[in-house]
């Protein structure tokens, strides 16, 4: 009961925050809306008793990605405010398509047994995080994705630094 109430409340807050993120002209406000949405996701994880995912969500998305977004907003030329029109002439059609898609997805989900059926109440094991850790480096588990993820992140870093940063000298030259 309480869980349902918290869920509905969180979902409502998340929806409003998501709308703020999309509709606000002031980019910093939009970023804050995004932060609230991401935080709401963490709350949903807690409701699902996925505590590790909840804290990881906050650490990575709120702690790192949101700050990155705010920093990149500060790099734009007309900082944080674009007072131009946010939509173009075809928005009614987009709305129509999005609406149809929502209805279609809703119909599909309604017919899906996994959603309507009550799940067997299964207690989450206490050593969830340890099991996750063991599975991550288990050769029969996820060790390949685990190591590939590290290579991917290394590649991402190299790419990002290469694109964003030509080194101190190049930066000085660019400034004239």
């Amino acid at each position: 009961m309480v869980t349902t109430f918290v869920f509905v409340l969180t979902a409502a807050v998340m929806l409003v925050a998501a709308l703020v993120a999309v509709l606000k002209n002031n980019l910093v406000h939009a970023a804050m809306g995004l932060v609230v949405t991401l935080f709401g996701t963490a709350v949903l994880f807690v409701l699902l008793e996925a505590y590790f995912l909840a804290v990881a969500q906050v650490v990575i998305y709120v702690g790192a990605i949101a700050i990155l977004i705010v920093f990149s907003i500060m790099l734009t030329r007309r900082v944080g405010a674009d007072w131009g029109q946010q939509t173009n002439a075809t928005w009614p059609f987009a709305l129509l398509v999005a609406g149809l898609l929502t209805v279609l997805l809703g119909l599909m989900v309604r017919g899906w047994a996994a959603v309507t059926a009550q799940p067997a109440s299964q207690a989450v094991p206490a050593d969830m995080t340890a099991r996750l850790g063991a599975a991550l480096v288990d050769p029969n588990g996820y060790v390949v994705p685990f190591e590939v993820a590290s290579v991917l992140l290394l590649a991402a870093l190299i790419g990002a630094v290469y694109v964003a940063w030509g080194g101190r000298k190049a930066e000085k030259d660019a400034q004239g």
């Binding site: 990575i60 850790g133 590290s150 990002a160 630094v161």
Partner: peptide, 21 residues
């Protein structure tokens, strides 16, 4: 500033993976 945030983000993601380990 952006660059520091970028490097930090990569480190953060990797370190979170290490905790369950």
């Amino acid at each position: 500033y952006y660059l520091f945030a970028l490097v930090f983000l990569i480190f953060d993601v990797e370190l979170v993976f290490l905790y369950p380990w």
